[in-house]
Design a protein around this nucleic acid. Structure first.
Lengths: 346, 346
DNA sequence: TTGTACGCGTTATCAA
DNA sequence: TTGATAACGCGTACAA
């Protein structure tokens, strides 16, 4: 087993000083052609690579980005990671991932763990618990210590930093407008409780779209779900709620769901009730995941361009890191949504 | 903006030496109660945290695990990551993620990047390109340098290290046996080309199960797909292949597919051809992802226990890291599969 | 009880 | 052209 070699070992072996070796390897022309070649040959032979940790310590930067997300088993978040990783790698950065599991304390602990020198900056999406508690001190403290943060998707006005968001409002308006165009007159929405900001915005988009189309808003057409369908039981409750929704509004001909799972569950329930999609009811979802694509019928959906969000977030962070610029010049980038039409609409 | 404070700064501020501060913070009883309290109070006030990088350099260990996977936008892999992260965090480790994107060169580059001091060990699943080229020198070299590797799922005999695998053979036998039990007599398989080891093993399980049930093997019932359904075009080809499969074997009453996508595509095609599931054809897949659960009908599937694989991998690696034990004592842990019965079988 | 010195691996500065 | 030294931040053996 040949352990990693260090400058010191090479120096000892070749009987020169450490600094000579270092310079020779970096092609400094202070060093004679002769020793340079000798050193480089030796280094190559023993496959010398500078130790990242030592470099990090010396340079006071790690070339590593910390990602904190609520959940990794989720198409949206994994796509964002892919986007981040893509540009991070291209620009010579690594990516270290922490999961908050939607918990405030895990979010705090994870951030503290990484903030102590392991990374140069954060890209994160806020956990639900944090959003509920509205306690954002760990973010502001991190920023105050000079460590930049880029927030994506689940962001919050209280924290001053770069942000990358989806235009949820506009996206859901697009969806509802399309349903109207396709002839729907009674459009229901299946959404989350309001503390999830994206849910709130998408609900608002629904409301505004109806207004703009002069369709009267009806409270019974708005189904607010308790979110986080983790267990199968939750799913059953959702199904029952949807049954009620449809049965108490017999003339529903369009459903807009703020996520994929709500949408395909709605389709499933509708079909069970003998309704046909898209003939009797048209459905549009939000989020472009696997379920939408492979459901039968495939689901028309508002794509959030998750990977692009990741790419943009990484660009923002790295620019911030590398271009020592005026701080407080934070920007919020809005990623446009795109309506992907498939077979759940006419 | 108050930057992170170091021992040196505290020492200077309190007019004591650095080592006094260090000792005081670690509750060394060499230090007088008096100064200890003073130092700790100050440290708390300024929220002192030791710098991870400095610790890593000093201790020659980073408390960080490197994960290299082919693809993160994939239920199986993200679940494995979740498992790894879970036990890693519990044992005080962080997790750094590199994506090979199924490419040999990206796998090599990513590993080199991380191997130079950034991490203590690897958990990885081999990229397809690497499997095809059968070039495993980067793994053996890494191991030779004293950096442990745990491979999961896509493993290879040529490399000597800890491994965590699914019992693909037994899992697919379970599936096929179940189809037989449920009355199927003509069972087709949709699988990958043989260089993907899991595909090969699952195919083999299919063959053995048929033999054990005295069902004659028929070449035309084996559909080997070129894998990696990335584009929509690929998917169309797959659908056509399945159409051919079913139409040229009119009596097919069971399909075993080695992954989720193949399985639900098969269901889709079958339905298009006017066949009913599970009445006319029963289908079983492999991998327990979202598609299986939410498809209509929901898919009976062989669960791989991805999260458990991740947990086990992390345990193996960390044990290896922390218990300076006899090397060459590598083990291969087999995670049992579980048949989850849903509605695509009778 | 406190402080000095050293080493982890590297690079930069300055001296020889 | 080469080498010694300091510094990045920390912990610890040893000296005071």
């Amino acid at each position: 087993m040949k352990r990693k070699v260090t400058l010191k070992q090479i120096a000892k072996e070749l009987d020169v000083s450490i600094s000579t070796v270092s310079k020779a390897l970096r092609n400094s022309k202070e060093i004679s052609e002769d020793t340079r070649q000798k050193v480089q040959a030796f280094a190559k032979l023993y496959n010398y690579r500078p130790n990242n940790i030592a470099l990090s310590l010396k340079n006071r930067k790690t070339k590593t980005i910390g990602i904190i997300i609520p959940e990794i088993v989720h198409h949206f978040f994994s796509k964002v990671i892919r986007g981040i990783e893509l540009v991070a790698n291209k620009r010579g950065y690594n990516v270290i991932v922490g999961l908050s599991n939607e918990s405030f304390s895990k979010e705090v602990i994870n951030m503290e763990m990484l903030a102590n020198g392991s990374i140069d900056g954060f890209i994160l999406s806020i956990s639900k618990e944090t959003l509920q508690q509205q306690d954002y001190h760990h973010f502001t403290e991190t920023i105050n210590q000079g460590m930049p943060i880029v927030m994506f998707d689940r962001v919050v006005n209280e924290v001053n930093c770069d942000k990358v968001i989806v235009d949820d409002l506009k996206g859901s308006k697009k969806a509802v407008n399309r349903l109207v165009e396709k002839g729907c007159e009674t459009i229901a929405i299946i959404t989350t409780k309001d503390y999830v900001s994206v849910g709130r915005l998408r609900t608002q988009g629904y409301i505004e779209a109806l207004e703009e189309n002069n369709i009267k808003l009806k409270g019974s057409l708005i189904l607010k779900v308790d979110d986080a369908l983790v267990s199968d039981d939750d799913l059953e409750f959702l199904e029952k709620d949807i049954v009620t929704l449809i049965e108490s509004n017999k003339n529903i001909d369009g459903i807009f769901a703020v996520n994929e799972l709500y949408a395909i569950t709605a389709m499933k329930v509708a079909r069970k009730l003998g309704l046909r999609i898209p003939d009797d009811i048209q459905v549009i979802g939000f989020t472009d995941g696997v379920l939408s694509k492979h459901a039968t019928p495939s689901l028309t959906t508002v794509s959030q361009h998750a990977q692009e969000m990741g790419e943009k977030s990484a660009e923002l962070l790295i620019n911030n890191l590398e271009i020592e610029e005026d701080e407080d010049h934070y920007q919020t980038v809005v990623i446009e949504t795109e309506l992907i039409e498939r077979n759940s609409t006419k």
